[in-house]
Protein backbone atom coordinates (compact mmCIF):
# COMPACT_ATOMS: atom_id res chain seq x y z
CA UNK A 1 0.00 0.00 0.00
CA UNK A 2 2.79 2.44 0.90
CA UNK A 3 4.38 1.69 -2.47
CA UNK A 4 1.14 2.74 -4.12
CA UNK A 5 1.13 6.04 -2.20
CA UNK A 6 4.74 6.61 -3.20
CA UNK A 7 3.74 5.92 -6.79
CA UNK A 8 0.93 8.52 -6.65
CA UNK A 9 3.25 11.02 -4.96
CA UNK A 10 5.88 10.58 -7.66
CA UNK A 11 3.22 11.05 -10.35
CA UNK A 12 2.16 14.35 -8.73
CA UNK A 13 5.81 15.39 -8.47
CA UNK A 14 6.26 14.64 -12.17
CA UNK A 15 3.25 16.83 -13.01
CA UNK A 16 4.49 19.64 -10.78
CA UNK A 17 7.98 19.56 -12.30
CA UNK A 18 6.73 19.51 -15.86
CA UNK A 19 4.14 22.19 -14.96
CA UNK A 20 1.29 20.31 -16.59
CA UNK A 21 -1.48 18.87 -14.40
CA UNK A 22 -3.62 17.49 -17.23
CA UNK A 23 -4.89 13.95 -16.59
CA UNK A 24 -2.85 12.66 -19.52
CA UNK A 25 0.40 13.95 -18.04
CA UNK A 26 -0.56 12.68 -14.58
CA UNK A 27 -1.24 9.24 -16.03
CA UNK A 28 2.09 9.34 -17.86
CA UNK A 29 3.80 10.32 -14.61
CA UNK A 30 2.12 7.39 -12.87
CA UNK A 31 3.35 4.90 -15.45
CA UNK A 32 6.83 6.42 -15.30
CA UNK A 33 6.91 6.26 -11.49
CA UNK A 34 5.63 2.68 -11.61
CA UNK A 35 8.56 1.70 -13.81
CA UNK A 36 11.08 3.52 -11.60
CA UNK A 37 9.71 1.90 -8.44
CA UNK A 38 9.75 -1.47 -10.11
CA UNK A 39 13.46 -1.05 -10.83
CA UNK A 40 14.22 0.28 -7.34
CA UNK A 41 12.43 -2.42 -5.34
CA UNK A 42 13.72 -5.37 -7.35
CA UNK A 43 15.87 -6.66 -4.50
CA UNK A 44 13.76 -5.51 -1.55
CA UNK A 45 10.84 -7.23 0.15
CA UNK A 46 7.99 -4.90 -0.89
CA UNK A 47 7.26 -6.76 -4.12
CA UNK A 48 3.60 -7.61 -3.50
CA UNK A 49 2.46 -4.33 -5.09
CA UNK A 50 3.98 -5.37 -8.41
CA UNK A 51 2.37 -8.77 -8.22
CA UNK A 52 -0.98 -7.18 -7.44
CA UNK A 53 -1.25 -4.75 -10.34
CA UNK A 54 -1.09 -7.47 -13.04
CA UNK A 55 -3.65 -9.45 -11.00
CA UNK A 56 -6.01 -6.49 -10.92
CA UNK A 57 -5.59 -6.00 -14.67
CA UNK A 58 -6.21 -9.70 -15.28
CA UNK A 59 -9.30 -9.54 -13.08
CA UNK A 60 -10.68 -6.52 -14.96
CA UNK A 61 -10.38 -8.40 -18.26
CA UNK A 62 -11.85 -11.59 -16.79
CA UNK A 63 -14.76 -9.58 -15.39
CA UNK A 64 -15.37 -7.61 -18.61
CA UNK A 65 -15.44 -10.85 -20.61
CA UNK A 66 -17.86 -12.41 -18.12
CA UNK A 67 -20.15 -9.38 -18.27
CA UNK A 68 -20.12 -9.53 -22.07
CA UNK A 69 -20.90 -13.28 -22.19
CA UNK A 70 -23.62 -13.01 -19.60
CA UNK A 71 -25.23 -10.00 -21.32
CA UNK A 72 -25.44 -11.89 -24.60
CA UNK A 73 -27.05 -14.83 -22.81
CA UNK A 74 -29.44 -12.47 -21.04
CA UNK A 75 -30.38 -10.82 -24.34
CA UNK A 76 -31.13 -14.21 -25.89
CA UNK A 77 -33.25 -15.19 -22.89
CA UNK A 78 -35.29 -11.98 -22.89
CA UNK A 79 -35.81 -11.90 -26.65
CA UNK A 80 -36.74 -15.56 -27.11
CA UNK A 81 -40.51 -16.09 -27.19
CA UNK A 82 -40.35 -18.98 -24.73
CA UNK A 83 -38.10 -17.80 -21.92
CA UNK A 84 -36.00 -20.69 -20.66
CA UNK A 85 -35.72 -20.05 -16.94
CA UNK A 86 -34.74 -22.22 -14.03
CA UNK A 87 -34.29 -19.68 -11.25
CA UNK A 88 -33.09 -20.49 -7.76
CA UNK A 89 -31.84 -18.82 -4.62
CA UNK A 90 -28.60 -20.54 -3.64
CA UNK A 91 -26.64 -20.15 -0.43
CA UNK A 92 -22.90 -19.95 -1.05
CA UNK A 93 -20.68 -20.30 2.04
CA UNK A 94 -17.88 -17.72 2.17
CA UNK A 95 -14.27 -18.41 3.06
CA UNK A 96 -13.31 -14.76 2.95
CA UNK A 97 -13.27 -12.85 6.23
CA UNK A 98 -12.36 -9.42 4.91
CA UNK A 99 -15.48 -7.19 4.81
CA UNK A 100 -14.34 -5.07 1.88
CA UNK A 101 -13.63 -8.27 -0.02
CA UNK A 102 -17.14 -9.60 0.68
CA UNK A 103 -18.75 -6.34 -0.45
CA UNK A 104 -16.63 -6.31 -3.60
CA UNK A 105 -17.54 -9.93 -4.30
CA UNK A 106 -21.28 -9.40 -3.86
CA UNK A 107 -21.22 -6.26 -6.03
CA UNK A 108 -19.39 -8.10 -8.80
CA UNK A 109 -21.84 -10.99 -8.65
CA UNK A 110 -24.77 -8.61 -9.04
CA UNK A 111 -23.14 -6.90 -12.00
CA UNK A 112 -22.80 -10.12 -14.00
CA UNK A 113 -26.22 -10.61 -15.57
CA UNK A 114 -28.08 -13.68 -14.48
CA UNK A 115 -26.89 -13.62 -10.91
CA UNK A 116 -28.04 -11.26 -8.19
CA UNK A 117 -26.63 -11.27 -4.69
CA UNK A 118 -29.64 -10.82 -2.44
CA UNK A 119 -28.14 -10.72 1.02
CA UNK A 120 -25.20 -11.61 3.22
CA UNK A 121 -25.92 -13.52 6.42
CA UNK A 122 -25.55 -11.41 9.54
CA UNK A 123 -22.50 -13.41 10.66
CA UNK A 124 -20.85 -12.85 7.22
CA UNK A 125 -20.48 -16.57 6.60
CA UNK A 126 -22.78 -17.05 3.63
CA UNK A 127 -23.93 -15.17 0.55
CA UNK A 128 -27.42 -15.69 -0.88
CA UNK A 129 -27.44 -15.50 -4.66
CA UNK A 130 -30.45 -15.46 -6.95
CA UNK A 131 -29.69 -16.90 -10.37
CA UNK A 132 -31.66 -17.12 -13.61
CA UNK A 133 -30.52 -20.54 -14.63
CA UNK A 134 -29.20 -23.29 -12.40
CA UNK A 135 -28.65 -26.88 -13.42
CA UNK A 136 -26.69 -28.14 -10.46
CA UNK A 137 -26.30 -26.14 -7.26
CA UNK A 138 -22.94 -27.67 -6.40
CA UNK A 139 -21.52 -26.72 -9.77
CA UNK A 140 -22.89 -23.19 -9.42
CA UNK A 141 -21.31 -22.85 -5.97
CA UNK A 142 -17.98 -24.12 -7.27
CA UNK A 143 -18.11 -21.63 -10.17
CA UNK A 144 -18.69 -18.69 -7.84
CA UNK A 145 -16.02 -19.84 -5.42
CA UNK A 146 -13.28 -20.63 -7.92
CA UNK A 147 -14.10 -17.89 -10.42
CA UNK A 148 -14.86 -14.86 -8.27
CA UNK A 149 -14.07 -15.51 -4.65
CA UNK A 150 -10.59 -16.85 -5.37
CA UNK A 151 -9.70 -13.87 -7.56
CA UNK A 152 -11.13 -11.26 -5.18
CA UNK A 153 -9.27 -12.94 -2.34
CA UNK A 154 -6.00 -12.82 -4.24
CA UNK A 155 -6.38 -9.10 -4.82
CA UNK A 156 -7.59 -8.14 -1.36
CA UNK A 157 -5.45 -10.35 0.80
CA UNK A 158 -2.17 -10.13 -1.10
Amino acid sequence: MSVFLLNVLLAIAWSALTGDFSPLNLGFGFVLAYGVLWLLTRKSSSRSYFLQIPRVIEFVFFFAWDVFKANVRMAITILSPQMRLRPAVVMVPLDMKNEIGIILLSNLITLTPGTLSLDISSDRKALFIHTLWVEDEEKFRAEIKSGYERRVKEIIEA
Binding site: R86, V89, V90, P93, I120, S121
Partner: peptide, 24 residues
Protein backbone atom coordinates in the same frame (compact mmCIF):
# COMPACT_ATOMS: atom_id res chain seq x y z
CA UNK B 1 -43.70 -14.42 -3.81
CA UNK B 2 -41.09 -16.11 -5.97
CA UNK B 3 -42.13 -17.43 -9.37
CA UNK B 4 -43.63 -20.93 -9.27
CA UNK B 5 -40.84 -22.22 -11.54
CA UNK B 6 -38.18 -21.37 -8.96
CA UNK B 7 -36.40 -24.65 -8.25
CA UNK B 8 -34.80 -23.79 -4.95
CA UNK B 9 -35.07 -21.12 -2.26
CA UNK B 10 -32.23 -21.21 0.25
CA UNK B 11 -33.42 -17.97 1.85
CA UNK B 12 -36.58 -19.67 3.05
CA UNK B 13 -36.63 -19.65 6.82
CA UNK B 14 -33.27 -17.95 7.14
CA UNK B 15 -34.56 -14.50 8.03
CA UNK B 16 -35.49 -13.88 11.66
CA UNK B 17 -38.68 -11.90 11.75
CA UNK B 18 -38.21 -10.14 15.08
CA UNK B 19 -34.67 -8.90 14.50
CA UNK B 20 -34.51 -8.81 10.67
CA UNK B 21 -31.25 -10.74 10.95
CA UNK B 22 -30.21 -13.29 8.36
CA UNK B 23 -29.02 -16.54 9.90
CA UNK B 24 -26.95 -19.28 8.27
Amino acid sequence: PLWKGTVRDDLRGHYKLSTHRLET
